[in-house]
Nucleic acid binder design. Structure first.
Ligand SMILES: [Mn+2]
Ligand SMILES: [Mn+2]
Ligand SMILES: [Zn+2]
Ligand SMILES: [Zn+2]
Lengths: 147, 147
DNA sequence: CTCCTCTTTTATAATAATTATCAACCGATA
DNA sequence: TATCGGTTGATAATTATTATAAAAGAGGAG
C-alpha cells in the first residue's frame, strides 16, 4: 500500500518518529504484503524502490516500528531455543516482554467457535496454544530486561 | 531427576536411540528442571556432572530428543523475526513444521475457564493467542522443508 | 571378553541473523 | 550559511546454531 508523504508523516508523528523516505518505504513494504514477513524479505521489497538502502536501516526501522507499536511482532518468544520435558498436553502463558513461560493446565479453547475458522486440511488433532500477556514484574513500569 | 542406566536405556531404546552417558545426563538435566530451558542453560547443568562435555553434544542431543519426541520445543516459530502490519487484534495459526503463519479472526478463548488459571498479576487485557498444528502440505508425509 | 562396525562425541570452523559502531548525510533552524 | 540532533549506510562484531572430520564409545556376533 502506498501512502502520500503527508499520510505517512501523520502516522510517524503519532508514534514520535521522523518521517524519512526510507522509513516510509519500509513501512509500506510491510503493510502492502498483508503477510507475516521477515526482515530479509522486507529488505528485498524495499530494494526495488531504494536499491542502495542498507540492510541495517531496514532492521533499525523494523525494530523501531515494533517498539513504537506500528507493527506487531509475530515471533514473540525468546529468540533462542527452549525445550520442555513435560510431555503431558498443556498450554503456555508467555510474557511478551521478558519471554518467561509458565504452564497453563486449563482447557479453555472453545472448539465450536474455533473450528469454522480452521482452513481445510489443517491438522489440529493435538492443539497447543500459547497465550501472550505481561507477567507481574513486567507490568510495572520499572520492568527489568529479559535474562 | 536421576534414572538408572537401565531405565534410560529403555526410554532411549523406545525412541530408537543408543543410550550413551552424555545423552542420559542431558536428558536428566532437562527433566529435572521442570522448566523451559535453553541449550546454554542445560549445558551449564550438564557440565556439573560431565565437565568436559562439548556444547555441540548438548545441541545434538537436544535436537535429537525434540525430533524423536522425548522433548517438546517451546519456541516453535520460525527462528527469525517476523512482523505483521495488521494491528487489528487477531490470533494466529502456526504450522509446527514449516512455520507458516495464518490469521484467525475467531474469538475462541473461554475466559471463564482460563481466568482461574492465570497467575495473580499477569496482564491479559489484550490476549493474543497462537494455535499450533500442521498445515495441509506438512500433514502429508512428503512435506517440504520450511522456506 | 574381543573384535568389528556403526554411531556418537569432541574440537573447531563455518554460517546466519542481528546488533553495534561511527563517519557522512540531511533537514530544520538561527 | 553555520550549526545541531537525528538518520543512514558501510562495515565489523556478536551470538546462536550447525557442519566437519578425526577420535572414542556402544552394541552385537562370535
Ligand atoms: Mn511447559
Ligand atoms: Mn497476522
Ligand atoms: Zn515478563
Ligand atoms: Zn506447514
Amino acid at each position: 500500500m502506498r501512502l502520500t508523504h503527508k499520510q505517512f508523516r501523520e502516522i510517524a508523528w503519532n508514534h514520535g518518529l521522523a518521517a524519512t523516505h526510507q522509513r516510509q518505504v519500509v513501512y509500506e513494504a510491510v503493510i502492502a504484503s498483508h503477510g507475516h514477513r521477515s526482515p530479509e524479505d522486507i529488505y528485498a521489497s524495499v530494494r526495488k524502490r531504494i536499491p542502495h538502502i542498507s540492510l541495517a536501516t531496514v532492521y533499525n526501522n523494523i525494530r523501531l516500528f515494533v517498539d513504537r507499536g506500528l507493527l506487531r511482532e509475530v515471533t514473540p518468544h525468546a529468540a533462542t531455543l527452549r525445550v520442555d520435558g513435560n510431555l503431558k498436553p498443556h498450554h503456555h502463558l508467555v510474557c511478551s516482554r521478558c519471554k518467561a513461560v509458565q504452564d497453563v493446565e486449563a482447557d479453555f479453547i472453545d472448539f465450536k467457535r474455533l473450528a469454522p475458522h480452521i482452513p481445510d486440511g489443517f491438522d489440529l488433532t493435538r492443539p497447543v496454544v500459547e497465550v501472550f500477556g505481561l507477567c507481574r514484574q513486567c507490568r510495572t513500569k520499572t520492568a527489568r530486561k529479559p535474562k
